[in-house]
Design a protein around this nucleic acid. Sequence first.
DNA 1: CCATAGAATGCAACAATGTTGCATTTGGAG
DNA 2: CTCCAAATGCAACATTGTTGCATTCTATGG
Lengths: 150, 150
Amino acid sequence: MPRAKASSDDGLTSAIAACRLRGAQITPLREAVLTALWSAERPLGAYELRDQLSDEAGRQISAPSIYRTLDFLCEQGVAVRIESRNAYIACTHREGDQACVLFVCNACGLSSEIENKKLERLLAADAEALGFSIDHRVLELSGSCADCRR
Amino acid sequence: MPRAKASSDDGLTSAIAACRLRGAQITPLREAVLTALWSAERPLGAYELRDQLSDEAGRQISAPSIYRTLDFLCEQGVAVRIESRNAYIACTHREGDQACVLFVCNACGLSSEIENKKLERLLAADAEALGFSIDHRVLELSGSCADCRR
DNA sequence: CCATAGAATGCAACAATGTTGCATTTGGAG
DNA sequence: CTCCAAATGCAACATTGTTGCATTCTATGG
């Protein structure tokens, strides 16, 4: 069973509002991409987004536009790139929190972001012990979600 | 300062031995790729490996051969793919242990694998809570290592 | 030692993903 | 309304990864 969509609109709306608060421009393309990500029931690839949005718009959207838009959304923290899949999802966990763990179901594509402060602290401690300063974290777990295990 | 290389040969040798114990064939290409990974001071891309090995061999090694070899080495657990970089390193942590955290320095490429059982348990607990069964984990932290921070 | 079957590799073509540079359009501030 | 900066269009290209099939190698049984 795919991503929980209850309050999809709320999430989308507040994500857009958050960008605006930071002084970022929400253009039609950016809004369309973010909407597509919120509507999708699984991670979407850049070219997949391009095709889908091109259909909707009735004209060809270019790959660079999509990539630039995705870069923007990720910088704003309202989308997340899944490195192990070359795909993207809307970021559903609360703004400003970098400490999220991503579970991705191989069968249905469900992707759940969860926060875990303890885990955060453990990673910070490991980094500290190594003298390592963390810029970016990738924490992706793939497998089978509760519904697909049956 | 790049990957610690003390006992590089030991690690390489025992990795090869471990593959043989499992009944896997260690061919010249496989050994060459694994040796290159152990010798490298940073993660290497597939095409980078191809070029390097082609030079050494005095003939062109094909991309598919490299990819198949890397797949083999990863399946054997003696190499690791870094998803966030499309690159590979030799697996230096102990055999059979999946619970490793990878720190990759953006400046020098140093990549340290560390184990953390507590972290392992936390992730397992999170998965349990979600009813999620984990097949594969990606845990990559990028930033600056102790030497490059200065 | 030789035959043979399965595994590994070579190779060509192709598919998917991501990027660059520059022209054009758009949107907001003055 | 004008102008500037930001965003987008667009073409070409770069990188990364894959497929299918032919060939070579290697371990094994005879």
